[in-house]
């Protein structure tokens, strides 16, 4: 019998996509639970009792101050040690969209120095618009555990919906290290797989970065929403291709399988 894999999907006022993430993990043979931040803050729940942590998308705390800033500040004030410990055990942590913004604000991404210092931000889109559509992405999977089912150079399509997704490194040195270490695991590309400008790069991200994995490969932050296309039939063009699992399916299945193999 398979080991039970417990997943915490962290929520607070304003997050959304919890249900999609919940169902994605549930149908990846794990036991997800939607956990409100307050329960972790008051000690009712413990991060250490879970195997995978997922930060969903949405607009935590109304996106006031900056997207993800309030949720990150709350976590940093009470739960950061537990979260760092969790990350350092090598267990999977993933954030999509607002979840990516939270991970960057927490300095879990890119975390080049392993000192959890702020090295990046997700700035407002260059278009100054809320960009919501399907985008093409090129996979550069490296050692990222969430991307094990993909081929290097594979082009996939995932939906996006955000207004603050422009990945902005602190300086050129941070960007160079991210690229040198192969941490830019997903890049916005055009329909031919080339790094291109707007509208292919929907937000003006440096080097077309759409997703970053930490060096160890167990923390992934991405602007697109794999949980929205776990199933083939929720893809925007599902009637135009043969049946297959949704493009988001491997992200969840990989995390659960990795957990069972390593822990």
């Amino acid at each position: 019998m398979n080991r039970d894999v417990k997943v915490a999907i962290l929520t607070m006022e304003g997050t959304n996509n919890e249900e999609e993430a919940y169902l994605s993990f549930k149908h990846s043979d794990s036991s997800p639970e939607i956990v409100h931040l307050k329960k972790l803050e008051n000690g009712t729940k413990k991060l250490g009792s879970y195997d995978i942590i997922f930060f969903p998308g949405g607009f935590s705390a109304g996106d006031y101050v900056r997207a993800g800033a309030v949720m990150a500040a709350r976590i940093r004030s009470r739960l950061m040690k537990d979260l760092e410990k969790f990350v350092e055990t090598g267990k999977p942590v993933m954030g999509s969209c607002n979840g990516f913004q939270v991970l960057v604000e927490l300095a879990l991404i890119p975390n080049l120095t392993k000192e959890y210092e702020l090295e990046a931000a997700l700035a407002p889109n260059m278009s100054n618009r809320f960009e919501a559509r399907t985008v093409y992405l090129r996979v550069n999977r490296g050692n990222c555990l969430f991307l094990r089912g993909f081929r290097d150079g594979e082009i996939i399509k995932l939906p996006i919906a955000h207004s603050e997704g422009r990945f902005t490194p602190r300086d050129g040195n941070v960007l160079r290290k991210i690229i040198k270490n192969g941490m830019n695991v997903l890049s916005y590309v055009d329909d031919k797989g080339r790094l291109s400008g707007y509208p292919w790069n929907p937000n003006g991200s440096e080097h077309n970065i759409a997703g970053i994995c930490n060096r160890e490969g167990n923390v992934l932050g991405i602007m697109p929403h794999p949980e929205r296309v776990f199933y083939n039939v929720t893809e925007s063009d599902w009637t135009r291709h043969e049946w297959r699992p949704g493009m988001g399916y491997p992200f969840f299945m990989n995390a659960v399988q990795f957990l069972r193999e390593k822990f």
Partner: peptide, 10 residues
């Protein structure tokens, strides 16, 4: 430092 600004961009 703790909430209102991200020193990378602000």
């Amino acid at each position: 430092e703790k909430l209102l600004a991200n020193p990378v961009i602000n």
